[in-house]
Nucleic acid binder design. Structure first.
Lengths: 178, 178
DNA sequence: TGATTTTTAGGACATTTGTCCCAACCGGCA
DNA sequence: TGCCGGTTGGGACAAATGTCCTAAAAATCA
């Protein structure tokens, strides 16, 4: 990605897998909307571990938080598959947000939805057995036909790979009250 | 709280402690902005356990998610202390959101901020030792001068009261890599 | 005040999860 | 082909957490 001032305010970009669109703690220049492909969005803490916030796909927006709050990236976003995105210059995004009420409304709804999801996930992660979350996750992934490594899966579930393997075995999950 | 159709579109309300402003899975009628006091916002899952999403205080907004997404309450909000809130009729809130760009901007920022917080907390909760989160939480609470029950604390940390007690003892925390 | 309920504390034991470690497998690559 | 580095699978043991349960202390109420 170049610093080139000639970058258009809005453009379509194609990225290969494993490319970073947003870097945690670094300034962002654009907001992206995913047209195709899957990205993972994760936070790395000082202790080296990483927590996967979410996997985002078609129709999802990236970098709005940073644009709206005028902060550096709060997470790193990396493509898992080749992706196609609409890149919107940050300043222009904000402009759009103010002047186009339909766009504003759409962003508002996307954020509200994501907020609800994040909160619900945090809760589920604490309140339910991993087996539950795991089953759900696997279903979603399966639908998407995307392949993740065990490391990503366990990262998303917030557990070690070892634990994930145990769960996958399904030996004795049904212990909990559920 | 009455069903009275004569409720003003916007009004100041005073509530005692332990009152519910929003009920999970029920329709909401208003959006609230806290003027004073502290509320807790929690999700109760089918298995009876509750997970505290956050404690909100002065200046925070409640019920916007439900208003924007037109869904039932995604969490229950209950006053921990006596609170004073500005109650805004849901329909009017949406109206304001569309017509008043400053208000729109403010809501957008509040949501962005909350999204960031929620995500960061979820991450911290997975990546750090409880002792870490606990210490941080205690510091915040202390600063606010509010008293929470152990149950609330543990609910917020996503652990059982028993575990919280053990942590408070501080017997052998320093085991982890940190 | 006395009774009742809530909150706090913590023992004992069962589960779960993490850490460490090793072996098998797989896909580049010289 | 043979040598990696990365992923996968799982054993073993330690640490963390949950569940169940009992008691005392504190708060609430008649």
């Amino acid at each position: 990605m170049s610093d080139d001032a000639s970058m258009a305010a809005i453009a379509i970009q194609e990225l290969p897998a494993r490319k970073r669109l947003i870097q945690q703690d670094k300034n962002t220049r654009s907001v992206y909307i995913i047209r195709k492909g899957v990205v993972k969005c994760f936070i790395a803490e000082e202790n080296g571990k990483e927590y996967i916030l979410e996997f985002l796909g078609e129709g999802e927006i990236l970098g709005e938080l940073e644009a709206i709050r005028k902060t550096t990236g709060m997470a790193t976003v990396e493509s898992l598959t080749p992706v196609s995105v609409v890149r919107i210059d940050k300043a222009w995004f904000l402009q759009l947000l103010m002047e186009n009420s339909a766009f504003n409304r759409a962003v508002l709804e996307l954020m509200a939805g994501r907020l609800a999801n994040t909160a619900i996930r945090a809760s589920r992660q604490q309140l339910y057995t991993l087996s539950y979350s795991l089953a759900q996750l696997l279903a979603v992934l399966d639908a998407g036909g995307v392949i993740f490594t065990k490391k990503d899966l366990s990262g998303y579930l917030g557990i070690s790979v070892r634990s994930l393997n145990r769960l996958l075995k399904g030996s004795k999950n049904a212990t909990f009250t559920k």
